[in-house]
Amino acid sequence: MTGTAMLEITGLTHAFGPGAGHPALDGVTLTIGEGEMVSIVGPSGCGKSTLLRCVAGLIRPTGGSVVLRGAPVDAVPDGLAVVFQDYSRSLFPWLSVRDNVALPLRRTQQGRAQRQATALDALGTVGLTDIAQKYPWQLSGGMQQRVAIARALACDPVLLLMDEPFGSVDAQTREDLEDLILAVRQDSRMTILMVTHDIDESVYVGDRVIVLTPGPARVRADLRVDLPAPRDQIATKALPGFVHLRTEVSRLVRGQPGDAGGRGSAGGTGRSAPGDDSRDRNRSRAARASQA
Protein backbone atom coordinates (compact mmCIF):
# COMPACT_ATOMS: atom_id res chain seq x y z
CA MET A 1 0.00 0.00 0.00
CA THR A 2 1.25 3.41 -0.90
CA GLY A 3 0.74 6.32 1.43
CA THR A 4 -2.47 7.09 3.27
CA ALA A 5 -5.96 5.80 2.77
CA MET A 6 -7.67 7.15 -0.32
CA LEU A 7 -10.86 5.24 0.09
CA GLU A 8 -12.38 3.59 3.15
CA ILE A 9 -15.37 1.33 2.67
CA THR A 10 -16.88 0.16 5.94
CA GLY A 11 -19.63 -2.42 6.37
CA LEU A 12 -21.21 -1.45 3.08
CA THR A 13 -24.58 -3.10 2.47
CA HIS A 14 -27.06 -2.49 -0.28
CA ALA A 15 -30.35 -4.04 -1.28
CA PHE A 16 -32.41 -3.21 -4.34
CA GLY A 17 -36.13 -2.79 -4.10
CA PRO A 18 -38.39 -2.00 -1.17
CA GLY A 19 -37.84 -3.39 2.32
CA ALA A 20 -35.11 -5.95 2.51
CA GLY A 21 -35.42 -6.32 -1.29
CA HIS A 22 -32.73 -8.12 -3.22
CA PRO A 23 -29.51 -7.88 -1.25
CA ALA A 24 -26.48 -7.11 -3.42
CA LEU A 25 -23.84 -6.13 -0.86
CA ASP A 26 -23.57 -7.69 2.56
CA GLY A 27 -21.05 -5.78 4.63
CA VAL A 28 -18.14 -4.99 2.34
CA THR A 29 -15.18 -3.54 4.21
CA LEU A 30 -12.15 -2.41 2.29
CA THR A 31 -9.43 0.20 2.54
CA ILE A 32 -7.60 1.40 -0.53
CA GLY A 33 -4.42 3.41 -0.30
CA GLU A 34 -3.43 6.38 -2.37
CA GLY A 35 -1.97 5.36 -5.71
CA GLU A 36 -3.09 1.76 -5.51
CA MET A 37 -4.42 -0.16 -8.48
CA VAL A 38 -7.02 -2.56 -7.15
CA SER A 39 -8.89 -5.22 -9.12
CA ILE A 40 -12.22 -6.50 -7.88
CA VAL A 41 -13.30 -9.93 -9.09
CA GLY A 42 -16.16 -12.18 -8.14
CA PRO A 43 -18.71 -14.56 -9.60
CA SER A 44 -21.01 -12.92 -12.13
CA GLY A 45 -23.95 -11.17 -10.54
CA CYS A 46 -22.27 -10.97 -7.15
CA GLY A 47 -22.65 -7.22 -6.80
CA LYS A 48 -19.31 -5.97 -8.15
CA SER A 49 -20.92 -3.21 -10.18
CA THR A 50 -23.19 -2.25 -7.29
CA LEU A 51 -20.11 -1.83 -5.12
CA LEU A 52 -18.53 0.43 -7.73
CA ARG A 53 -21.70 2.50 -8.10
CA CYS A 54 -21.88 2.98 -4.34
CA VAL A 55 -18.28 4.18 -4.32
CA ALA A 56 -19.07 6.55 -7.19
CA GLY A 57 -21.99 8.00 -5.29
CA LEU A 58 -24.36 6.92 -8.06
CA ILE A 59 -26.25 4.64 -5.67
CA ARG A 60 -26.98 5.49 -2.06
CA PRO A 61 -26.16 2.33 -0.11
CA THR A 62 -28.68 1.02 2.41
CA GLY A 63 -25.99 0.64 5.07
CA GLY A 64 -22.34 1.27 5.86
CA SER A 65 -20.17 4.09 4.66
CA VAL A 66 -17.83 5.13 1.88
CA VAL A 67 -15.22 7.72 2.78
CA LEU A 68 -13.10 9.31 0.07
CA ARG A 69 -10.09 11.29 1.28
CA GLY A 70 -11.71 11.68 4.69
CA ALA A 71 -15.06 12.94 3.36
CA PRO A 72 -18.14 10.72 3.37
CA VAL A 73 -19.52 10.02 -0.12
CA ASP A 74 -23.24 10.79 -0.36
CA ALA A 75 -23.31 12.13 -3.91
CA VAL A 76 -20.87 11.89 -6.79
CA PRO A 77 -17.73 13.37 -5.23
CA ASP A 78 -15.12 15.69 -6.68
CA GLY A 79 -12.03 14.16 -8.18
CA LEU A 80 -13.69 11.00 -9.36
CA ALA A 81 -14.14 9.67 -12.89
CA VAL A 82 -15.86 6.55 -14.17
CA VAL A 83 -15.28 4.34 -17.21
CA PHE A 84 -18.38 2.29 -17.91
CA GLN A 85 -18.42 -1.09 -19.58
CA ASP A 86 -20.89 -0.10 -22.25
CA TYR A 87 -18.80 2.45 -24.13
CA SER A 88 -21.19 2.55 -27.09
CA ARG A 89 -23.94 3.82 -24.79
CA SER A 90 -21.91 5.96 -22.43
CA LEU A 91 -20.45 8.15 -25.20
CA PHE A 92 -22.92 10.62 -26.72
CA PRO A 93 -23.35 9.85 -30.43
CA TRP A 94 -24.36 13.44 -31.27
CA LEU A 95 -21.03 14.83 -30.06
CA SER A 96 -17.69 14.48 -31.77
CA VAL A 97 -14.98 12.56 -29.96
CA ARG A 98 -13.35 15.78 -28.81
CA ASP A 99 -16.63 17.27 -27.58
CA ASN A 100 -17.40 14.05 -25.71
CA VAL A 101 -14.10 14.32 -23.89
CA ALA A 102 -14.47 18.07 -23.31
CA LEU A 103 -18.06 17.94 -22.04
CA PRO A 104 -17.39 17.11 -18.38
CA LEU A 105 -14.75 19.86 -18.23
CA ARG A 106 -17.34 22.63 -18.47
CA ARG A 107 -17.87 22.46 -14.74
CA THR A 108 -14.25 23.10 -13.91
CA GLN A 109 -12.77 24.97 -16.87
CA GLN A 110 -14.25 28.21 -18.18
CA GLY A 111 -12.70 28.79 -21.58
CA ARG A 112 -13.79 26.71 -24.52
CA ALA A 113 -10.31 26.81 -26.01
CA GLN A 114 -8.83 25.58 -22.75
CA ARG A 115 -11.33 22.70 -22.57
CA GLN A 116 -10.62 21.72 -26.15
CA ALA A 117 -6.89 21.74 -25.45
CA THR A 118 -7.33 19.57 -22.35
CA ALA A 119 -9.49 17.18 -24.34
CA LEU A 120 -6.91 16.91 -27.12
CA ASP A 121 -4.25 16.32 -24.51
CA ALA A 122 -6.21 13.45 -22.99
CA LEU A 123 -6.88 12.02 -26.43
CA GLY A 124 -3.15 12.17 -27.03
CA THR A 125 -2.56 10.12 -23.89
CA VAL A 126 -4.71 7.31 -25.28
CA GLY A 127 -3.21 7.71 -28.76
CA LEU A 128 -6.23 9.13 -30.55
CA THR A 129 -5.33 12.74 -31.38
CA ASP A 130 -6.00 12.30 -35.08
CA ILE A 131 -9.61 11.19 -34.76
CA ALA A 132 -10.77 14.05 -32.51
CA GLN A 133 -13.22 15.30 -35.14
CA LYS A 134 -14.85 11.94 -35.72
CA TYR A 135 -17.98 10.66 -34.05
CA PRO A 136 -17.92 7.73 -31.62
CA TRP A 137 -19.96 5.51 -33.93
CA GLN A 138 -17.33 5.87 -36.62
CA LEU A 139 -14.80 4.10 -34.38
CA SER A 140 -14.16 0.49 -33.44
CA GLY A 141 -15.15 -0.75 -29.99
CA GLY A 142 -11.61 -0.57 -28.68
CA MET A 143 -11.18 3.01 -29.90
CA GLN A 144 -14.52 4.00 -28.36
CA GLN A 145 -13.36 2.65 -25.02
CA ARG A 146 -10.13 4.63 -25.43
CA VAL A 147 -12.26 7.75 -25.88
CA ALA A 148 -14.16 6.88 -22.70
CA ILE A 149 -10.84 6.49 -20.89
CA ALA A 150 -9.64 9.82 -22.29
CA ARG A 151 -12.85 11.46 -21.06
CA ALA A 152 -12.14 10.12 -17.58
CA LEU A 153 -8.47 11.17 -17.67
CA ALA A 154 -9.28 14.67 -18.90
CA CYS A 155 -11.03 15.31 -15.57
CA ASP A 156 -7.71 14.60 -13.85
CA PRO A 157 -9.33 12.40 -11.21
CA VAL A 158 -7.70 11.24 -7.98
CA LEU A 159 -9.82 8.11 -8.12
CA LEU A 160 -10.64 6.33 -11.36
CA LEU A 161 -13.39 3.73 -11.27
CA MET A 162 -13.72 1.23 -14.09
CA ASP A 163 -16.65 -1.14 -14.40
CA GLU A 164 -15.61 -4.13 -16.50
CA PRO A 165 -14.06 -1.67 -18.93
CA PHE A 166 -12.70 -4.21 -21.36
CA GLY A 167 -15.53 -6.73 -21.15
CA SER A 168 -16.80 -6.19 -24.67
CA VAL A 169 -13.67 -5.89 -26.81
CA ASP A 170 -11.66 -8.63 -28.48
CA ALA A 171 -8.70 -10.27 -26.77
CA GLN A 172 -5.95 -8.37 -28.60
CA THR A 173 -7.61 -5.01 -27.98
CA ARG A 174 -8.20 -5.95 -24.36
CA GLU A 175 -4.47 -6.54 -23.86
CA ASP A 176 -3.64 -3.22 -25.50
CA LEU A 177 -6.10 -1.43 -23.24
CA GLU A 178 -4.74 -3.17 -20.14
CA ASP A 179 -1.28 -1.94 -21.03
CA LEU A 180 -2.66 1.52 -21.71
CA ILE A 181 -4.14 1.66 -18.21
CA LEU A 182 -0.87 0.49 -16.69
CA ALA A 183 1.02 3.18 -18.62
CA VAL A 184 -1.43 5.90 -17.67
CA ARG A 185 -1.23 4.89 -14.09
CA GLN A 186 2.55 4.89 -14.19
CA ASP A 187 2.50 8.52 -15.26
CA SER A 188 -0.26 9.87 -13.08
CA ARG A 189 -0.15 7.93 -9.83
CA MET A 190 -3.91 8.09 -9.57
CA THR A 191 -5.78 5.50 -7.55
CA ILE A 192 -7.66 3.02 -9.72
CA LEU A 193 -10.45 0.65 -8.77
CA MET A 194 -11.35 -1.76 -11.53
CA VAL A 195 -14.15 -4.31 -11.54
CA THR A 196 -13.52 -7.19 -13.89
CA HIS A 197 -14.73 -10.73 -14.44
CA ASP A 198 -11.47 -11.70 -16.10
CA ILE A 199 -9.15 -13.37 -13.60
CA ASP A 200 -5.97 -13.00 -15.68
CA GLU A 201 -6.73 -9.34 -16.10
CA SER A 202 -7.32 -8.81 -12.40
CA VAL A 203 -3.88 -10.19 -11.57
CA TYR A 204 -2.10 -8.64 -14.54
CA VAL A 205 -3.10 -5.03 -13.89
CA GLY A 206 -3.61 -5.07 -10.13
CA ASP A 207 -1.44 -4.30 -7.12
CA ARG A 208 -4.17 -6.00 -5.19
CA VAL A 209 -6.95 -8.37 -6.11
CA ILE A 210 -10.13 -8.30 -4.04
CA VAL A 211 -12.22 -11.45 -4.44
CA LEU A 212 -15.90 -11.11 -3.57
CA THR A 213 -18.23 -13.91 -2.50
CA PRO A 214 -21.26 -14.85 -4.60
CA GLY A 215 -24.03 -12.29 -4.04
CA PRO A 216 -24.77 -10.69 -1.73
CA ALA A 217 -21.12 -9.75 -1.86
CA ARG A 218 -18.66 -9.77 0.99
CA VAL A 219 -14.89 -9.68 0.69
CA ARG A 220 -13.71 -13.26 0.44
CA ALA A 221 -10.04 -12.55 -0.04
CA ASP A 222 -7.66 -9.68 -0.44
CA LEU A 223 -4.50 -10.69 -2.28
CA ARG A 224 -1.40 -8.64 -2.82
CA VAL A 225 0.13 -8.97 -6.28
CA ASP A 226 3.88 -8.76 -6.01
CA LEU A 227 4.75 -9.05 -9.64
CA PRO A 228 7.60 -6.97 -11.02
CA ALA A 229 6.98 -3.82 -13.01
CA PRO A 230 6.82 -3.04 -15.82
CA ARG A 231 4.41 -5.80 -16.59
CA ASP A 232 4.44 -7.49 -19.93
CA GLN A 233 1.63 -9.42 -21.54
CA ILE A 234 3.89 -12.37 -22.35
CA ALA A 235 6.72 -12.34 -19.82
CA THR A 236 4.63 -11.44 -16.76
CA LYS A 237 1.97 -14.00 -17.55
CA ALA A 238 4.66 -16.69 -17.79
CA LEU A 239 5.97 -16.01 -14.28
CA PRO A 240 5.28 -18.73 -11.70
CA GLY A 241 4.02 -16.00 -9.39
CA PHE A 242 1.41 -14.95 -11.95
CA VAL A 243 0.31 -18.50 -12.62
CA HIS A 244 0.03 -19.25 -8.96
CA LEU A 245 -1.99 -16.12 -8.22
CA ARG A 246 -4.38 -16.62 -11.09
CA THR A 247 -4.99 -20.18 -9.93
CA GLU A 248 -5.60 -18.95 -6.43
CA VAL A 249 -8.00 -16.22 -7.57
CA SER A 250 -9.72 -18.69 -9.86
CA ARG A 251 -10.32 -21.09 -6.99
CA LEU A 252 -11.58 -18.32 -4.74
CA VAL A 253 -13.97 -17.04 -7.39
CA ARG A 254 -15.34 -20.55 -7.87
CA GLY A 255 -15.69 -20.92 -4.15
CA GLN A 256 -13.31 -23.89 -3.95
CA PRO A 257 -10.97 -24.21 -1.00
CA GLY A 258 -7.89 -22.24 -1.92
CA ASP A 259 -4.45 -23.73 -2.07
CA ALA A 260 -3.09 -21.76 0.85
CA GLY A 261 -0.10 -22.06 -1.38
CA GLY A 262 2.60 -19.65 -0.63
CA ARG A 263 5.24 -21.53 1.20
CA GLY A 264 7.75 -19.44 -0.62
CA SER A 265 6.65 -20.33 -4.13
CA ALA A 266 4.57 -17.40 -5.27
CA GLY A 267 1.46 -15.36 -4.70
CA GLY A 268 0.78 -12.39 -2.52
CA THR A 269 1.08 -11.39 1.07
CA GLY A 270 -2.28 -12.51 2.23
CA ARG A 271 -4.38 -10.23 4.31
CA SER A 272 -7.50 -11.57 5.86
CA ALA A 273 -10.59 -9.65 5.07
CA PRO A 274 -12.76 -8.49 7.93
CA GLY A 275 -15.99 -10.41 8.11
CA ASP A 276 -14.57 -13.48 6.46
CA ASP A 277 -14.90 -16.79 8.18
CA SER A 278 -11.79 -18.63 9.23
CA ARG A 279 -11.77 -20.86 6.16
CA ASP A 280 -11.60 -17.81 3.96
CA ARG A 281 -8.91 -16.38 6.11
CA ASN A 282 -6.69 -19.38 5.70
CA ARG A 283 -7.39 -19.50 2.03
CA SER A 284 -6.34 -15.95 1.39
CA ARG A 285 -2.95 -16.48 2.88
CA ALA A 286 -0.23 -16.42 0.34
CA ALA A 287 3.40 -15.72 0.14
CA ARG A 288 5.65 -13.27 -1.55
CA ALA A 289 6.08 -13.38 -5.27
CA SER A 290 9.13 -15.02 -6.65
CA GLN A 291 11.29 -12.36 -8.10
CA ALA A 292 12.20 -14.42 -11.11
Partner: peptide, 29 residues
Amino acid sequence: VDPVQMETARAFRLPGWQRLTKLIIPATM
Protein backbone atom coordinates in the same frame (compact mmCIF):
# COMPACT_ATOMS: atom_id res chain seq x y z
CA VAL B 1 -33.15 8.49 -22.81
CA ASP B 2 -30.60 5.72 -22.38
CA PRO B 3 -30.08 5.06 -18.64
CA VAL B 4 -26.35 4.52 -19.26
CA GLN B 5 -26.14 8.00 -20.76
CA MET B 6 -28.05 9.44 -17.82
CA GLU B 7 -25.73 7.67 -15.42
CA THR B 8 -22.73 8.97 -17.36
CA ALA B 9 -24.07 12.50 -16.99
CA ARG B 10 -24.42 11.98 -13.24
CA ALA B 11 -21.01 10.35 -12.90
CA PHE B 12 -19.39 13.33 -14.62
CA ARG B 13 -21.59 15.72 -12.67
CA LEU B 14 -23.03 17.56 -15.63
CA PRO B 15 -25.07 20.46 -14.26
CA GLY B 16 -28.84 20.33 -14.86
CA TRP B 17 -28.83 22.77 -17.74
CA GLN B 18 -26.13 20.85 -19.62
CA ARG B 19 -27.87 17.58 -18.91
CA LEU B 20 -30.87 19.10 -20.66
CA THR B 21 -29.10 20.70 -23.62
CA LYS B 22 -26.30 18.20 -24.18
CA LEU B 23 -28.07 14.95 -23.37
CA ILE B 24 -31.85 14.97 -23.01
CA ILE B 25 -32.71 17.25 -25.93
CA PRO B 26 -30.34 15.64 -28.47
CA ALA B 27 -31.44 12.18 -27.35
CA THR B 28 -35.08 13.18 -27.81
CA MET B 29 -34.58 14.64 -31.29
